[in-house]
Simulated scan of single mutants.
Amino acid sequence: MHDTIPVDEIMVEDVVTAPPDATATDAATLLRDEGVSSVLVARDGEPVGIVTEGDFATQLCERQDLGHVELSAVMSTPLTTVESTASIVDAVELLRSSDIEHLPVVDGGDDNSELVGIITTTELTYYVPHLAHAPSRLEAAPTHRQVRTDTKYERDDWEFEYRSADESTISAGDIARFSKPITDDDVEAFADVTGDTNRLHLEDAYAAETRFGKRIVHGVLANGLISAALARLPGLTIYLSQESSFRAPLSIGDRATAVCEIVEDLGRSKYRVETVVLDGDDTTVLEGSAVVLIDDLPAMATHEGDAAATGSPD
Rank of each mutant, 00 (worst) to 15 (best):
I100H: 06
I5G: 01
K180R: 06
L221Q: 12
H102R: 13
R199C: 00
L30K: 05
I252D: 01
E62G: 02
V259T: 01
E13Q: 10
T77C: 09
D254G: 09
Y206I: 05
Y239D: 04
S76K: 14
L115S: 08
A165H: 12
E287A: 03
R199K: 04
S87K: 09
I170P: 01
M75Y: 15
H133R: 15
V116I: 12
V69M: 13
R255E: 08
A42P: 11
V259L: 04
V220G: 07
P313W: 13
T81F: 00
A301Y: 09
E159G: 11
A91E: 02
T310E: 11
D265I: 06
V41H: 03
A307F: 06
V147K: 12
D166G: 15
D281S: 06
L266T: 04
S312T: 12
E167D: 14
A42G: 04
T52C: 07
G253C: 14
Y126I: 07
H144T: 15
M300A: 10
K180C: 09
D296L: 00
G311P: 05
V89F: 08
R163H: 15
A256W: 05
D156Y: 15
H133G: 14
N198L: 06
I226G: 02
V273W: 00
A228S: 11
E167G: 09
P20Q: 09
G219P: 09
D186R: 06
I88V: 11
S38C: 09
A222R: 08
V263S: 08
V292P: 03
Y206L: 12
S289H: 06
R43V: 05
T17V: 02
A207D: 02
A42W: 02
R272Q: 05
V15C: 03
V16C: 03
A208L: 00
H133L: 11
G213I: 14
T197N: 10
D314L: 08
L278Q: 09
P6M: 00
D26A: 13
G117K: 09
K270V: 00
D282R: 07
G45K: 03
D314I: 10
V36T: 11
E139P: 07
E123M: 12
V292M: 02
E34I: 03
E139L: 14
A307P: 04
R232Y: 06
H201I: 04
A140T: 00
N223V: 01
Y162S: 15
D204I: 01
L230E: 10
V7F: 07
A222G: 15
L71Q: 13
S251Y: 08
G109H: 08
S179K: 15
L71G: 08
V82K: 03
R255D: 04
V74S: 06
A208F: 11
T257I: 07
D185T: 10
R148Q: 14
P6C: 10
L225C: 10
S168P: 13
P129V: 04
R199Q: 05
P6F: 00
G311A: 03
R232F: 11
R148N: 10
